[in-house]
């Protein structure tokens, strides 16, 4: 049995080090104490939306006035991702803050659209637009 395990172990040590099944990377840019830009990298689905939730939770807890979630680098978003954003939106609105979402692909926009949320979120085409708004 050692052959089986050894080979596998060697295998992933060598070619697929820890970052291979990446927990989703999320870039956070603190523009000012009143404004944060959150940029999830990769696909937001059931497996990764928890991490986005954690980051958003931290930001809303600090009551950051303007939170920008940029989905420019997100290839995919599903209902769990959307739900995470709704949750954050409610928290932000509770302290009269603002949540802005940056969407630059039709694919992602359509997901918001079929959820009937395209009018609920403030959507911008680029992070710069969202910052200047």
């Amino acid at each position: 049995m050692s052959g089986y395990f050894k080979r596998k172990e060697k295998w992933h040590k060598k070619y697929l080090q820890k970052d291979a099944t990446l927990p989703m990377e999320i870039k956070v840019e603190e523009v000012s104490p009143q404004m944060s830009v959150i940029i999830p990298q990769g696909e937001i689905d059931m497996g990764s939306s928890g991490e986005l939730r954690d980051v958003l939770h931290k930001t809303t807890k600090n009551k950051v006035q303007t939170i920008i979630v940029s989905l420019e680098d997100a290839g995919h978003i599903d209902s769990s991702g959307i739900a995470t954003l709704i949750e954050a939106l409610k928290k932000v609105e509770a302290y009269s803050g603002e949540l802005r979402v940056v969407i630059n692909t039709k694919k992602i926009f359509n997901v918001f659209k079929i959820a009937n949320l395209d009018m609920v979120f403030k959507i911008y085409e680029s992070t710069q637009d969202a910052k200047n708004a």
Binding site: S79, S80, I82, A83, I86, L89, I114, A115, N116, L117
Partner: peptide, 18 residues
């Protein structure tokens, strides 16, 4: 129900819509 904005039940709504 889509009038209410809250998380949850969205996935099933997606199925029926798409």
């Amino acid at each position: 129900c889509l009038d209410e904005i809250r998380p949850g039940g969205l996935g099933v709504h997606f199925l029926y819509t798409i």
